[in-house]
């Protein structure tokens, strides 16, 4: 059975298009806003929605996503709430959804229970930034059974052997981290990025999407020349942060997201 993420890449490939993946933290600033944003995003052509499960110690994240996590945690948003949100989104949209969560959240929940409930709620894939493939055996096994995609990360420091290993364990797509560092907007991205993505694509046939640091549509367009998709997180969350408590939050953020969609 092909899941929505794999289906999406198949379609995009046929249309010779690249994926635009938007990340927001679930519950930032509250679950109902996240729901409205998600629905608007799918309206303006976001190909895959990446939803962050808030965590107290997000060590792969820079200040912007840390703050988003803190805002969501103020409302005590937990994994169950996020799964509930996905379930309610599924009544209105079939946009593929991947969850980004730190490993302790899943571990505490129970790995098998997580996979079962995520799938039942309509989640299509999972990204765990502090779980390298070596530690992911149990999750991969459980996810495979339910055709939940396991999206692993590759970094500029990953050598050929690791690229092969990570590619073999990844389903849905491979998440290439554009730079050595945490998430967060950057004025410029490493120049060797294009070369790196080409190198990875020579080794794997799976879709390769690039995230971390992408802050403007022009950067996204540059990356989409070689990658199969572009992931934008902190830049979107910055727009949420700038419009907190204002009625124009959802349309403003959506407009910003549409700019990326049009660029790639």
């Amino acid at each position: 059975m092909m899941n929505r993420i794999e289906q999406k890449f198949k379609e995009l490939r046929q249309q010779k298009k690249k994926a635009f993946i938007a990340f927001i933290t679930a519950g930032d600033p509250n679950l109902s806003t996240t729901k409205r944003l998600a629905l608007e995003f799918s309206q303006v052509g976001v190909d895959i929605l990446e939803l962050g499960v808030p965590f107290s110690d997000p060590l792969a994240d820079g200040p912007t996503i840390q703050a988003a996590s803190q805002r969501a945690l103020k409302n005590k948003v937990n994994l169950k709430d996020v799964l509930g949100l996905v379930k309610s989104l599924r009544q209105k949209t079939q946009t593929p959804i991947a969850l980004l969560t730190y490993y302790n959240i899943i571990f505490r929940f129970g790995i098998k229970d997580f996979v079962k409930e995520a799938k039942a709620s309509g989640v299509d894939g999972v990204i765990v930034p502090d779980l390298p493939v070596e530690e992911a055996g149990e999750l991969i096994k459980a996810a495979k059974k339910k055709s939940l995609a396991t999206i692993f990360l590759l970094a500029p420091t990953s050598d050929k052997q690791r690229i092969k290993k990570i590619s073999a364990s990844s389903s849905g797509f491979i998440y290439y981290v554009s730079l050595t560092g945490t998430t967060g907007v950057r004025k410029s991205l490493p120049r060797e990025l294009i070369k790196q993505v080409r190198r990875i694509k020579r080794i794997t046939s799976k879709p390769v999407c690039v995230g971390f640091g992408v802050s403007e549509p022009a950067q996204a367009r540059w990356i989409a020349r070689v990658a199969d998709g572009v992931i934008v997180g902190s830049a979107i969350i910055k727009r949420i942060e700038n419009n907190l408590g204002q009625s124009g939050l959802v349309p403003k953020v959506t407009k910003f997201v549409r700019g990326f969609r049009e660029a790639i």
């Binding site: 060590l59 792969a60 490993y103 930034p129 502090d130 779980l131 390298p132 070596e134 530690e135 692993f152 990360l153 590759l154 970094a155 500029p156 420091t157 990953s158 050598d159 690791r162 990570i166 981290v177 050595t180 560092g181």
Partner: peptide
């Protein structure tokens, strides 16, 4: 025990 870190650090 184990190694639960971002991929970027695995090489180091």
């Amino acid at each position: 025990g184990g190694k639960f870190v971002p991929e970027t650090l695995m090489h180091a």
